[in-house]
């Protein structure tokens, strides 16, 4: 397997210590929670990302994030990597995150780039869900 040490470490750390790596769930019905779920079991990966935000000035800031991912090692590592990028960002900043940043951070092999695309989609969807509630 052509995984970088970064993918392997990220995956193993997340698996060893899920709480510390923001694995978990928020109640999706709460008003300050946005949920995004992308992928399909038949394709081999499903990512669920939830953001908890609060208003700050004329925007909203991401206070906390939870995720769960079904998928290959790089899908799990990609979600975990994304989660770290999100905390403390405004929604505008979070929307700007591109899959390329995850690819670079984890040195994903070309065949696994779709995992980072999925991660990007999951945050977009979570923000959409959050904004629709405001």
């Amino acid at each position: 397997m052509a995984y970088s040490k970064k993918v392997v470490d990220k995956f193993e750390n997340t698996l060893e210590n899920p709480q510390a790596f923001n694995v978990g769930r928020f109640d999706p019905k709460e008003e300050n929670v946005g949920t995004g779920m992308v992928g399909a079991p038949a394709c081999g990966d499903v990512m669920k990302l939830q953001i908890k935000c609060e208003p700050k000035g004329n925007t909203h800031i991401i206070k906390d994030v939870k995720f769960k991912t079904y998928g290959c090692g790089s899908a799990i590592a990609s979600s975990s990597e994304l989660v770290e990028m999100l905390i403390g960002k405004t929604l505008e900043e979070a929307k700007e995150i591109k899959n390329k940043e995850i690819v670079d951070a984890l040195e994903l092999p070309p065949i696994k780039i779709h995992c980072s695309v999925l991660a990007e989609d999951s945050i977009k969807q979570a923000i959409e869900d959050y904004e629709s509630k405001q």
Binding site: M37, V38, P41, T69, L118, D121
Partner: peptide, 20 residues
Amino acid sequence: PLWEMHLDGIDLDTVKWNTH
């Protein structure tokens, strides 16, 4: 997330997935 949905009693075959 699939295990979580399963524990919540959701039948995964009835879910509409966002395939990519």
